[in-house]
Amino acid sequence: MRAYYFDNLPGDQRLPHDFNPSRPVSQETLEAIGVKSWEIPVERYEPKLNAVAKERDYKNRDTINVSREGMGAIYEEKIKGFFQEHMHEDEEIRYILSGSGFFDVRQASTDEWIRLAVTPGDLIVIPAGIYHRFTLDEADNIKALRLFKDEPKWIPHNRGVETDANPYRQDYLKSIGVGA
């Protein structure tokens, strides 16, 4: 996974949106905002992925194919929805099997976007309460395992005053030492 600051320039969300020169983001910075990642080669990934799942108490999983072929008529609507800034009350855990894309996460202390460019073998954990969004890149497809602690919950809470006051958002901010 490659992490860098998003340039915020207008244009296709599927482009890299990297500064020139790039402004890379360190693993330490990601850990400070609660984002965790591992690289697990896709060939024979199951033992290592299962070990992480056991360690983090992930009990369920499924596979998602985000592509025109995989999603059919709802593809454009879903891509637009994934790219709306939101948070969840559960961790978002993804292991990339094929394809590629971008997860953008907000660095709460600066409100800057950090772009996470994911490719096969990347496992990422986006903490509950962090503002984030997702988009495909120009290859226009990604296949990922989604892992869950319990039953999947698909409730995105779009950024706003009400979501800022959400207890999961407040707990997240406390956990990273931001805010009251």
Rank of each mutant, 00 (worst) to 15 (best):
G177Q: 13
N65K: 06
A117C: 04
A139L: 12
A51I: 04
F103V: 05
E39G: 04
P127I: 03
E43W: 01
Q13V: 07
P41H: 09
T119W: 00
E162H: 09
I114M: 03
T119K: 09
V35H: 01
K54H: 13
A165L: 11
A144C: 06
I176P: 15
V161H: 02
Y4Q: 12
T135K: 06
N20T: 15
D104F: 02
Y4W: 05
K149P: 00
K153G: 13
G121F: 10
S37P: 07
T63C: 04
T163I: 08
W113Q: 02
N8T: 09
T163E: 14
Q27D: 15
L123N: 10
E28P: 05
N8A: 13
K54T: 15
F134G: 01
T63R: 07
T63L: 13
W154N: 02
R2F: 05
A139W: 02
N166R: 07
I96R: 02
Y58W: 15
A3M: 06
V178Q: 08
V42F: 09
R23A: 06
F82G: 03
D164P: 08
I124M: 12
I74D: 06
L30C: 02
N50I: 01
G99H: 03
W113S: 04
E69N: 07
Y95P: 06
Q13G: 00
A3P: 00
E31W: 14
I33T: 11
F103K: 02
T29I: 10
S100I: 00
A144V: 11
A53H: 10
D111F: 08
Q27C: 07
H86L: 04
E89P: 01
W38R: 13
P167Y: 09
Q107N: 13
V161A: 08
D62Q: 08
D90Q: 12
V161E: 06
L136R: 01
G11K: 09
S37I: 00
I176T: 12
F82R: 03
E39S: 14
Y172G: 07
P47N: 13
N141T: 12
F19E: 01
Y75E: 05
G121Y: 10
S67M: 02
R169H: 00
R44D: 15
R14L: 11
A108F: 10
P152Y: 04
M87R: 01
S26W: 10
I126S: 07
A32R: 13
R61C: 15
